[in-house]
Every structure is written in C-alpha cells, then in structure tokens.
Design a protein around this nucleic acid. Structure first.
Lengths: 184, 184
DNA sequence: GACAAGTCGTGAAGTACGTACTAATGTGCT
DNA sequence: AGCACATTAGTACGTACTTCACGACTTGTC
C-alpha cells in the first residue's frame, strides 16, 4: 500500500469519530442540511477499503481477493457435489457474472474445479479441490488474526452491533431495490 | 441491478442480524473458533456493496461513482485555485493513481479541469467547473434522500455510532499498517 | 552550480465488480 | 408434440481500485 496515508479523524463532543474534511464537503453539498447519512455512507466506504487493504497486506503472496476468499470458504463449508454459479452468486449477494470471474481465478489457482451438473445441463457446479482445502487450512489462522486485529479496541458487543448495523443497511437496500423495481 | 438478490438474514437471540450461510462457512474456516471478527468484516463488505448499488440505482444517467462524487464534493467545498492530486488522494484516503483516474473521468464529464500548479511544476491542480457546481446542486437532494433511505430504520444515535465504528476500523488499519511497515 | 535523493502525476498491467447481450438448455401451456 | 418463455453460464465492455515503474521536477547537501 503506497501513497495511501489516510488523514486522522477528529472526535465529536460525544467521542465518536468523524472525518473533518468529508464533513466540510458534505455540509457544502447538502447546503447546510443534515449530513449524518452521507457521512455514515462515506465511513462505510472508508472501512471497506481499510479492511481490503488489511487483507491484501496480511495474506501476502497467495493472497486471494475478498470475493474469491468468500467463495472458497462457502465451497469449503459444503461437502457435496459442488455449488452452481448462480447459487453462489445469490448466497454471496453478487452478480453471477462476478462469480464466473472469481471461479475463473480460483480455477486458475487450482483451488476449485468446474464440473457439469447432470441434473441441469445449463448449470455448472464449482467444487473445492484438495488444494483449496489446503489453502483454507494454511490461511485460516493468519486471516483470523488479521481481522481480529482490525477490531482490536472493540468490545465483543460492539463487534456484534457493528455487524448488525452493516447488515441492516444491506437489508434496507434490498428492500428499497425491490420497492423501486415495482415502481418502474 | 440484475442477478443480485441477496439472501435474507437471520437474527441472533439478541436480535442482531447475521448471515447464516456466511457464518456456517466461517465456522468451517476457523475450525470452530471465534467468527465474530470475520463475520463483521464480511458484513462491512456487504454493506459497502449495498450502498454502492443504491447509488448506482439512485443517480441514474449522470450518476458518478462514489469515488468520483467524493472528489467532486471535496473540490466543491474548497473555493481556491484547486487541489493537487496528491492532496486529494491523501484526504480521501485512496492511492494517488486512483485520483488521477477519477479526475480523468470528471474532466471528461466537464465537471472538473486540470490546471498546472505554478508553485510546483510537478503538481497538477484539479478545479471544479461551473458545470461541476451545477451537478452538485442537481444531485444534492436526490443523493441525500437515497442515503437517508438506506438508514431509514436507524435512530440518529445509531447512525452516529455506526460512523464511529467504521472510522475506528479504518483507524486501526492505519495504525496497523504503520506498525507493520516499521517491522519490515 | 552540481548532483543525489525524494516527490509528483501518470502509463502499464492486473483484479473485482457492474450491465447488457447471447447461446444453450429447461419448463410450462395449449 | 410443439412452441413461447424463463433461466444459466458466459462473452463483451466499462469503471474503480491497486501496485510497479518511470520521467519530470524540487530540494537538501556539498
């Protein structure tokens, strides 16, 4: 990670952090209105990139992207014939096109293989390989340690609450998308 | 947004949401260890993509990406000769190469222009144009509405706390990166 | 003044993610 | 049976973000 040296944050009177530069920009943007939602959205962005950087830095060498790692973990948890691309996409909440690409990557690394689905010949099943399971074994502990470090000053309750808030945002988006789809 | 129909979440006994499929995968991954940090990290990813989708859906047509919008807002808040690429990168917490690309995009749209820095001829200043300010005027209200909708069932306190948790994660990453840099 | 070392923006290349479209295949209605 | 329509994975294309490498430029030191 070069050239990225995030500026420090300030703290509000209640102790919660905020990004002064972002807040100033938001205030201008909203014309003096409420910036809370925009600030929170920007903060999610910041946190996401931070986690992404941590992962890139942590699992040096054979580091998989978060998307690929997510898929591999999901495949590792199922001990059957494999999971179809579409099913993976739905469960991970990303486009199937993206899963196709990630499976390409994992297949190139030898961690996953494609097998045709005999029940539905349109479908392709992704199966984790022995190497894939080895990867999981090898990277489980360092990954876990890196992510634990990211939340080092969080109480257990805060971690849980944080997860809850994140998923509620995702839930809202899902609901809104469905609502808007109906309106079109 | 096609092909993306995120599965629903379950709620823990304490009412906090979690992703059952992800948790199952994590448990396998950690070998039965604590999955809290990994689950939280995955949740951030989910929330980030949700916000990204909302923005893509909301500001249809002349929709800028979140990165580009962030830059434009920062430029809109400064009424001087402009801001250098590196300064923007630092303030937004991304690589300067990325800012170069985003300024390319904004310049193509006519929302920003590049001017040489007379004090330092290596440097390039990005200036917001009149069109850029018009864009801000036009998209301020809908963007604000969309982001408010994303947090519709959040109390004001929860939004603030959420922002704080996000920025603390970013702060931890920053600290860890500096620490690890020293160790190499 | 000259020159080594650091900084600045950007070209090149790689990954992740999205939409729109297509070919192959499955399904349901008549 | 046959045919319209849905669904699946993948192709093509565009954007965001990253690291690495490089040329243009500044700065600190002699």
């Amino acid at each position: 990670m070069k050239n990225v040296h995030k500026s420090d944050f300030d703290a509000d009177p209640d102790g919660s952090l905020f990004d002064p530069a972002a807040r100033a920009a938001m205030r201008q943007f909203t014309g003096g209105g409420d910036t809370a939602a925009l600030e929170a959205a920007a903060a999610v962005r910041t946190a996401f990139h931070a986690i992404e950087r941590m992962r890139a830095h942590g699992s040096q060498g054979r580091g998989l992207s978060s998307g690929a790692m997510d898929l591999l973990m999901r495949l590792g948890a199922t001990d059957g014939d494999g999971v179809s691309i579409g099913e993976l996409a739905q469960s991970a909440g990303v486009s199937s096109r993206n899963v196709t690409g990630l499976v390409d990557t994992l297949e190139r690394e030898g961690l996953v293989r494609r097998v045709p689905d005999q029940r539905d010949r349109r479908s392709v099943l992704a199966q984790i390989t022995a190497e894939g399971r080895d990867w999981i074994k090898a990277f489980s502990e360092p990954s876990q340690r890196a992510m634990t470090a990211m939340f080092m000053d969080f109480s257990a309750d805060e971690v849980t609450r944080f997860r809850d808030l994140c998923l509620r945002v995702a839930d809202n988006q899902h609901r809104l998308a469905q609502y808007l789809e109906g309106a079109s």
